[in-house]
């Protein structure tokens, strides 16, 4: 739960960060691309049924660590994207208690068919 809440908060921060840190165009675009994705994935991962989707935020974090280097980047922006990028990756790992049973989840579909 807490991992998802922090993920969503970081996503919102990414959407306002370009204004607060006056990010250059490339870094700003990266933050405003990664932000909505982090929120979308974070909200969906709140529920047990869609909890596996949290893995997507590993890619979101990696994108944030790599993509801004296409353009120029200043000290504050660099610290920001690296901290948030790594945080998104680390926060994708804890699964947390599921609380609900869902008949074996998504993999059960394939186990039945194959």
């Amino acid at each position: 739960m807490w991992a998802r809440v922090i993920t969503i908060a970081l996503g919102i921060w990414l959407m306002v960060a370009p204004v607060v840190l006056s990010s250059t165009s490339v870094t700003g675009v990266c933050e405003r691309t990664a932000g909505p994705v982090a929120i979308f994935v974070g909200v969906l991962s709140l529920r047990a049924v869609t909890r596996p989707l949290r893995a997507i935020n590993v890619l979101t974090g990696m994108f944030l660590l790599i993509a801004p280097w296409v353009g120029s980047i200043t000290g504050a922006q660099q610290v920001n994207v690296e901290l948030v990028g790594w945080a998104l990756i680390v926060l994708s790992f804890p699964r947390g208690p599921l609380g609900q049973r869902m008949g074996g989840g998504w993999s059960a579909i394939f186990q039945q068919v194959v």
Binding site: L44, M102, W106, A108, I109
Partner: peptide, 23 residues
């Protein structure tokens, strides 16, 4: 986003049902 998160479980239940029937 909320609709997707709240609603997709039902689709999972249907897909599991179809998979069981198929089997």
């Amino acid at each position: 986003t909320l609709i997707l998160g709240l609603g997709i479980g039902e689709t999972l239940a249907s897909l599991q049902h179809i998979a069981r029937q198929w089997r």
